[in-house]
């Protein structure tokens, strides 16, 4: 409890209360946790797998597993990192299975849908040149992301999009924090290199 009064105590304690109640098999508390995390986990899984159906399966499997395993979680303040670990590992397992049974299961519809967000979000921008440039950059980023190895992609997404700490990412990927820094730097470098043709 030494850090009890630092940071976003309110939000964290609030979540801790929900976690504790969900550990007690209170479905309403669990539903609040589900609402807080299902979209985040879906976004992570969609970027990892590029397949909506599989991303939804990951969300369903992981949240259900978390409900069932929750009573075993010792520290109620670690729920976020724990559920991200379940989701990331599930995605990496699926990608490993894909690589041993290589077939391109990416549905173009999914990619269109996932990519669409990038090019439709700027309707209010007035400068068409700037808009186009931004869209190209976003497309470049999305595509560069897909070229990374699954572990690197997970590392980059967890840090840059999901704001997880280096320590959490290290625990999720079972590597030391220094290795997380290294992978992240390498991922940024590779993405930046691949994006440059769009400049």
């Amino acid at each position: 409890m030494d850090n009890e009064f630092t940071g976003d105590t309110s939000a964290r304690t609030d979540e801790a209360s929900k976690v504790a109640r969900a550990q007690d098999r209170d479905p309403e508390a669990f539903e609040e946790l589900l609402l807080a995390y299902q979209d985040k986990l879906f976004r992570l899984a969609l970027r990892m797998l590029n397949d909506r159906g599989q991303a939804e399966d990951v969300v369903q499997d992981v949240l259900l597993a978390s409900w069932r395993q929750l009573p075993l979680l010792r520290d109620v303040n670690t729920f976020g990192g724990w559920i991200y670990r379940l989701a990331t590992n599930r995605c990496l397992d699926i990608l490993r299975q894909r690589s041993t049974h290589p077939e391109d299961i990416t549905d173009p519809q999914d990619l269109h849908c996932a990519g669409e967000v990038v090019w439709t979000g700027n309707a209010q921008e007035s400068d068409p040149v700037e808009t186009t440039e931004r869209e190209f950059r976003a497309q470049g980023l999305t595509e560069a992301l897909r070229m990374l190895s699954p572990e690197q992609r997970a590392c980059w997404l967890l840090r840059e999009i999901h704001d997880r700490s280096y320590a959490e990412i290290g625990a999720i990927l079972k590597v030391p924090t220094t290795a997380v820094r290294g992978r992240l730097a390498r991922a940024r470098h590779e993405i930046a290199e691949r994006m440059s043709p769009w400049r």
Binding site: F42, A138, R199
Partner: peptide, 28 residues
């Protein structure tokens, strides 16, 4: 290149968080 990447990352993060396409179906 990194400055561009940082801008693109922020835009991607923002777009994902605000787009219903990045939400699982209610049935899940």
């Amino acid at each position: 290149r990194m400055i561009q990447l940082r801008q693109a990352t922020a835009a991607l993060k923002d777009a994902e968080a605000n787009d219903p396409a990045f939400t699982p179906r209610r049935s899940v």
